[in-house]
C-alpha cells in the first residue's frame, strides 16, 4: 500500500495537464478501494474548480441546484484547516438531512473525510474521500491512512498550482541550508545516523529537515527528493 501511495505521489507530481491529473487522482479510488475522491478549490480566475470522480449526473445536479449552500462538508470548510470526518459535522438541519439522502442516492456514500489545504499564498483547497461502509470500518480506515491523506491533499494542491502558475511555483522551491545539507549527505550515501552526526543535530531533527525538503520538492520519498534536488541544481554531490 505504501509503495502504491509513493508511486501515486510521483505520478501526481509529473502530470503535465489538469486532464492527466484528473485521471491520476481518480486512480486513488483503486488504491484505497473507496467510492469517490474529490479535490476542490478556487482557480486563478476566482472560479470554483474541482477534480472529482462523482457520477456526472450527481455532479451536474449538485451544481445546478447550488447544493454547496447546504452541503455541511463545504460550509465553513474554507475557513478551517483541521481534517474532519463527515460524521462529526452538523447534519441536524432539515436541508442537510435531505442533502445527505440525495448524496446517498447519487452514490457518494455514507462516510467521508475532508482534508483542508492552506497554501503558500493563503489560498484554500479541500481534498475529500467518500465511501459506503460501517462506522467501525471507517474509523479503522481513517486511523490507518490519515497522514497519507494529509500528504495527498497537499501534493495534489501543489501540482495544480504548478500547472496553473508555473512561474511562481518554480521559484517557490528554496531549500534552507540545513535541508540542503541533509539531502546532500544522504545523496552521498550516508545513513541518517551518520548524516545527523556530521551536521551535529539529532536524527529526529534531521528527519524533520528531510520531511520539509521532501514536501517543498513535492517528492514522494527521500530518494526522490535527493534526485529532484540534484536535477534542479539545489544540491551537488
Amino acid at each position: 500500500m505504501q509503495n502504491q501511495i509513493e508511486t501515486f505521489l510521483e505520478r501526481v507530481e509529473h502530470c503535465k495537464s489538469l486532464v492527466e491529473l484528473n485521471a491520476v487522482v481518480a486512480g486513488l479510488r483503486d488504491i484505497f478501494q473507496v467510492n469517490h475522491v474529490v479535490y476542490h478549490s478556487v482557480n486563478s480566475t476566482g472560479e470554483p474548480y474541482a477534480l472529482a470522480t462523482y457520477d456526472q449526473q450527481w455532479a451536474e445536479y449538485y451544481e445546478s441546484e447550488a447544493l454547496y449552500r447546504v452541503d455541511p462538508v463545504v460550509l465553513g470548510a474554507f475557513q478551517r484547516f483541521h481534517p474532519y470526518n463527515w460524521k462529526s459535522l452538523d447534519w441536524e438541519k432539515k436541508t442537510a438531512r435531505q442533502f445527505f439522502q440525495e448524496a446517498q442516492d447519487g452514490g457518494v456514500g455514507n462516510q467521508g473525510v475532508s482534508v483542508p489545504v492552506r497554501g503558500p499564498n493563503g489560498e484554500f483547497a479541500l481534498f475529500s474521500i467518500s465511501h459506503t461502509c460501517s462506522d467501525e470500518a471507517w474509523a479503522r480506515f481513517l486511523s490507518a491512512h490519515m497522514p497519507n491523506f494529509l500528504l495527498i491533499g497537499h501534493y495534489i494542491h501543489a501540482s495544480i498550482r504548478a500547472l496553473e502558475f508555473p512561474e511562481t511555483v518554480g521559484s517557490y522551491v528554496v531549500l534552507s541550508p540545513r535541508e540542503t545539507d541533509a539531502l546532500r549527505l544522504l545523496g552521498a550515501g550516508l545513513n541518517r545516523g551518520r548524516a545527523a552526526e556530521q551536521l551535529k543535530i539529532s536524527e529526529h531533527t534531521l528527519r524533520v529537515y528531510i520531511e520539509s525538503a521532501r514536501s517543498k520538492l513535492n517528492a514522494s520519498n527521500t530518494t526522490h527528493a535527493v534526485a529532484k534536488a540534484l536535477a534542479q541544481g539545489l544540491i551537488n554531490i
Binding site: R97, R140, F141
Partner: peptide, 18 residues
C-alpha cells in the same frame, strides 16, 4: 458535532466493508 449530545444523524449502517 456528534459528541455534543445530539444523536448522530447520518442514517443507516451499511453492510459493505472496506
Amino acid at each position: 458535532h456528534e459528541s455534543c449530545g445530539q444523536p448522530s444523524s447520518i442514517p443507516g449502517q451499511v453492510s459493505a466493508q472496506l
